[in-house]
Design a protein around this nucleic acid. Sequence first.
DNA 1: CTGTTAGCGCTTTCAT
DNA 2: ATGAAAGCGCTAACAG
Lengths: 326, 326
Amino acid sequence: MTVTIYDVAREARVSMATVSRVLNGTAVVKDETKRRVLDAIARLGYRPNAVARGLASKKTKTIGVIVPDVSTDFFAEVVRGIEDIAAMYSYQIILTNSDADVQREVDLVGTMWEKQVDGIIYMTNHLRPEHIEAFEQAQIPVVLCATEDPERRIPSVNIDNRQAGRDAATYLLERGSRRIGFVTTARGVSLLADQRGNGLASCIPADQFFRIEVEQGQYEEALPVIQEQVKLHSLDSLVTASDELGLAAIHAVQDIGLKVPGDVKVMAFDNTKLANMVRPQMTVVAQPMYDFGAVSMRLLTKLLLDEPVDNLTVILQHDVVERLST
Amino acid sequence: MTVTIYDVAREARVSMATVSRVLNGTAVVKDETKRRVLDAIARLGYRPNAVARGLASKKTKTIGVIVPDVSTDFFAEVVRGIEDIAAMYSYQIILTNSDADVQREVDLVGTMWEKQVDGIIYMTNHLRPEHIEAFEQAQIPVVLCATEDPERRIPSVNIDNRQAGRDAATYLLERGSRRIGFVTTARGVSLLADQRGNGLASCIPADQFFRIEVEQGQYEEALPVIQEQVKLHSLDSLVTASDELGLAAIHAVQDIGLKVPGDVKVMAFDNTKLANMVRPQMTVVAQPMYDFGAVSMRLLTKLLLDEPVDNLTVILQHDVVERLST
DNA sequence: CTGTTAGCGCTTTCAT
DNA sequence: ATGAAAGCGCTAACAG
């Protein structure tokens, strides 16, 4: 039924070891012999069994990817970046969604362990001791992606979120903003969002800075909250933790009869496709989402292939992109 | 270093077979013995090696997912549906992007074969003989997702795209539309889009129907094309193959000084989050994206677990959702 | 209810 | 340059 390396060996009149050698390029094989083997492989339609190979070699050529939710613009783009580079290095990815639930995240590391993945690319809102412990127990190389380990124990790829917050603040302050609202999720939910908030707060006088919390960070629920806060505090500017919230901000402002950017400036984080597709097009602090994934995966390949790595915590550049909402 | 089933057996003073039994519930084990085994497992921090298990049992509990591009709203949502149900049945998914390239798609089936996946969920714009051949060669159960096999050889989950096209046409015709443009990708690129187009065309008099082709189907490139065609043919309605194109349609119309829906009605396909987040909110033919994935995966589990299946080609319901753009 | 024994299909020494 | 043989860690008969 299934054709194995034995069948190929017999067909080519060599030993299975030789077949393995031409398959993996592990050692020099005489040209003539190699040809015979390749012919046999083609004739039989042989495909090496990666599971058997994985058991024997203890390398599976698969990478575990743990992400809060792929269906999100941001992470979908990151995952694309991961998969592209993985494919380039002949790795496949096992994708799992954690919904940012700590218990589930830890369980997933266990699953990845059982699957014997060669490495893990890990995204979460907030790295906890439980995560670190799970990584150590599983003994699998991990790269944090768009996720920060404040103590730099785990390799990671990220931007400088605090600086990004400061840059947003500076941008607005320079343009005369004096009552700035920061639309974000509840504190503690996302370390990154909190850091951006801290960056903003560090540049803006306390009496000019207003934190606006939207539980899930979704468009629908954000609209009324933002409207209320803009009116209540007579805000002249809004910074949002995501493009989706940015759009909510624009609409919320418009719905109470004010103009963007005339009455209220709106500046979002991320720069997904959405930012460019709405009217007015949004000024954003752009994040290199695809690169988060691509660079993380590249870093992981370096770790796996024992290539030299000069820096285990890489900081990608962010970028203020000025458009029409400010 | 790594603890194996042998170590557990020794620690629990039973044979490896017994450990395997309590692990898999394959046979009845005395309570007392089971307890000893479970204790040993906990004490040693044992994790079964899924690769070894896969080699021995010829089942890997992993599913291959081949998708044109996860970073797309539509497919990201589908993949989420797949993964949720997969997790529910203790399957993991290997995710790969094909960019809708036929050669790459065929190669990926080969990769999945090598990885010994238990099944494949397959999405493509246009099913070709090469695909069918690849499936047959690999001998792996396949479920087509949001993809149609006109000859119904392969199990699939889809909506009735022709009917969806007719429904869109009917909706607009009943509301007085007489010059209707269909904004879509080039013919032949996407069978589904073509079928919807056919559905539309079958209900609309030929001299009232205008096909507007946008090469990649993206927002930016669509804007000028749509503007030109709307002016050229004095269109009073636009149907678009995606929400992204729907938004492009709205903006294109507004940019030439016309009103949506006053002067031109816009109706999109899909109903991603976007449709609800733009102004005016878009009337759409809603597709059950999450369910495409979830139902496909569920169907695949039935196939894999030999559960009875009454229909191998399942047609999900679509739905016209009226909002403010028509 | 539990133990013994073959493999699963491949990689990897160790010889030659 | 090539072959022989010993596992990798587990499941699955087959005994008992």
